[in-house]
Design a protein around this nucleic acid. Structure first.
Length: 227
DNA sequence: AAGCAGACCAACCGCAACATC
DNA sequence: AGATGTTGCGGTTGGTCTGCT
């Protein structure tokens, strides 16, 4: 029988105090991340290792951006969600300084609603019938995105199948494709059309290769982000 | 000003994948 | 190869905040 991840009766739960935060920061700065299971004891924290990891990743990490999402980030989340479904860590990985939890929360509290308002089904990113047409990006500001693959669901990673239904329904298109085999066109090219900004291009390349690698894709629908 | 409802977000839980023995 | 341990992920919960009546 496996031991629980922590001795639950001896651990604190709930909100973190400043002192706990400081202990965690100090410890990680001195010893680095990892070894979460033994970290709490070593750092003098009455917390479960999982809890420490989460606190560090979602809140204490120095490279976190925090604050409101900009329009570009919103659009990128929407587009990536269309491709990846609820794979928040992958999506967050393309948003420097953002965490999966943050992206997930933002999606659930803002973006979902926004898409629904625009007449788009947030689960499959398709226009809903008998719904008002999206006010083509008026709501989302100045960014326009075009996914060249007609069915943006093309990229559904293997994991979503037989994954106990945990991974998003956002990529479940079997109803549109009775044989259950969508016409997979799995690569993604993100082109950010924006005034000269060399780092954007670098970032684009990085995005492209990372996502292509992740999804094992072959050919490439192009996602154009006009900023 | 008080009460209520909805929104937001930090944190927890359970599970799966991966690593190690 | 199988058992066990660790880490990471996504779904969900619950406390707090905010706006409305």
């Amino acid at each position: 029988m496996r031991k629980p991840c922590c001795d639950k009766q001896d651990t604190n739960k709930g909100a973190w105090s400043k002192q706990e935060d400081q202990k965690l920061i100090d410890y990680i700065q001195a010893n680095g991340e990892g070894r979460w299971r033994t970290l709490p004891q070593a750092a003098g924290l009455l917390r479960c290792g999982k809890s420490c990891r989460l606190r560090w990743i979602n809140y204490l990490r120095p490279d976190l951006k925090r604050g409101n999402f900009c329009e570009d980030e919103e659009d990128l989340i929407i587009k990536l969600h269309a491709l990846l479904g609820n794979r928040w860590s992958l999506i967050a990985g393309r948003l420097p300084g953002r965490t999966d939890n943050e992206v997930k929360n933002y999606w659930n509290s803002h973006l979902r609603r926004k898409l629904i308002k625009m007449g788009i089904d947030p689960n499959n990113h398709k226009l809903r019938n008998n719904r008002p047409r999206p006010q083509n990006h008026g709501a989302s500001g100045s960014t326009t995105a075009i996914l060249s693959s007609p069915e943006s669901h093309a990229c559904q990673p293997e994991k979503s199948q037989g994954d106990n239904g945990q991974v998003s329904d956002a990529g479940s298109y079997s109803e549109e494709n009775p044989n259950g085999l969508p016409d997979l066109n799995l690569d993604l090219t993100i082109t950010i059309v924006s005034p000269s900004n060399s780092t954007v291009e670098e970032e684009r390349k990085e995005n492209q290769s990372a996502i292509s690698t992740e999804l094992g894709c072959a050919s490439s629908p192009t996602l154009l982000l006009f900023t």
